[in-house]
Structure formats: C-alpha cells, structure tokens
Amino acid sequence: MPDNAPIDHAAAMRLWERYRAARPDVATDPEPPSVERFGDHPELTDALLALVLDGTKRATAGLVAEFAAEGQPLPRVGSHWIACDSTGAPRVILRSTELRVGPFASVDAAFAYDEGEDDRSIESWRDNHSRYWRRVASSLGFEWTEQHEIVFERFDVAWTA
C-alpha cells in the first residue's frame, strides 16, 4: 500500500492565516491548529476527504493513543484542525463541535451515520474502524483492542482551500 505524501505545513499555515483574517470572530485558537489527514493511505485519505467536502462526513474517530504517539493534545470543542489530501495539500479547515472519549463499544448508530462512511451503519463502522485501528496500532508498535479509548468528534467545515 503506498504512503501519503508529506504534509505541506507551510501551505497549511497560509490557509490558516487566510481564514483567521476573514473570520477573526471564530479563529481564536491560542495555538496554530493541528495539520492532519484522514486515513492511512492515499485512496482512503482522498475518499474520506471527498466525503467531508461533499457534506456527507461530519464526524470522525481517533485513538487517544494516536494523539499521544504524535505528541498532539486531544481536540476540544471550538478548536480547529486542517485536513490535507494524499498529496499533502491542505484542503479544508474543520472546527470541532462535539467531543467524547469512550470505548469502541460506546459508538452509536447516529455517530456511525455522521461519519458518512460505507453504508453509514454501525455494523460497517465497527468493521471498518477495527480493521483501520489494527493497522494504525501495529504501525505504532502496539496491539489494538476494543478497550482502547477513542475520541469521538463531530465537526463543521469552517473554510475550504
């Protein structure tokens, strides 16, 4: 499976500055936003980003252990982050609207639907996310189990590139 290209952090900060200049009322984060991407390979990254851009995907979930491994603080309501495509180009600024930390089993059908992936069912959510987190955990040097804490996040699109 090919890797995503490196993230263009300079371009992401230029996008952030344009957003801050246009929306100083909401771009009040004390620190620059994190710059990330959905998925762990180009095809998945671009497919998930397309769901964000077309309005289907308005939620995401990540392992607390991923944030720790990357030295990233957990998101907070009102904070922003920049999502990049598989080429590393920043495409969209997202603003967290709802956050919850819980175990895998605590996902509900409404959250699975809001993630917008596959058929939007809780069954496909569980299947796809368990496979994804097994890959991520392996790449980080641990074995994923359903007991690992997950950040369940809903977001709005604040700005597009």
Rank of each mutant, 00 (worst) to 15 (best):
106 S>Q: 07
100 R>V: 06
110 A>T: 06
114 D>P: 06
111 F>Y: 00
104 F>L: 03
122 I>T: 08
110 A>Y: 03
110 A>G: 05
127 D>H: 15
104 F>R: 06
110 A>H: 08
117 E>D: 10
93 I>F: 02
93 I>W: 03
103 P>N: 10
97 T>N: 03
100 R>S: 08
97 T>M: 03
127 D>Q: 15
125 W>Q: 11
129 H>F: 04
95 R>K: 06
94 L>Y: 02
128 N>Q: 14
108 D>F: 08
117 E>I: 14
126 R>F: 11
108 D>P: 10
102 G>T: 01
118 D>E: 14
116 G>H: 05
118 D>A: 13
123 E>R: 14
110 A>R: 08
105 A>G: 08
102 G>L: 01
93 I>E: 03
127 D>V: 15
109 A>V: 03
126 R>H: 15
96 S>K: 01
122 I>Q: 12
116 G>I: 10
124 S>Y: 14
95 R>L: 03
129 H>M: 14
130 S>D: 14
95 R>W: 02
106 S>C: 04
109 A>R: 08
102 G>A: 10
120 R>W: 13
114 D>K: 15
129 H>Y: 05
110 A>S: 07
109 A>T: 04
114 D>S: 13
125 W>I: 01
124 S>M: 14
126 R>G: 06
130 S>G: 12
103 P>E: 09
107 V>H: 01
121 S>E: 11
95 R>H: 01
116 G>Q: 07
104 F>Y: 09
112 A>V: 04
97 T>D: 00
108 D>W: 04
126 R>T: 04
92 V>H: 04
110 A>F: 03
99 L>F: 05
114 D>V: 12
94 L>M: 06
121 S>G: 11
120 R>Y: 13
114 D>C: 11
114 D>E: 09
101 V>M: 09
115 E>I: 11
103 P>W: 07
104 F>P: 08
93 I>G: 00
108 D>G: 09
93 I>V: 05
102 G>C: 05
99 L>Q: 09
106 S>I: 00
125 W>G: 10
116 G>W: 02
108 D>R: 07
119 D>L: 12
94 L>S: 04
96 S>T: 09
96 S>M: 08
97 T>P: 00
111 F>Q: 00
118 D>P: 07
99 L>H: 07
113 Y>T: 08
100 R>K: 09
119 D>T: 11
115 E>H: 11
117 E>P: 13
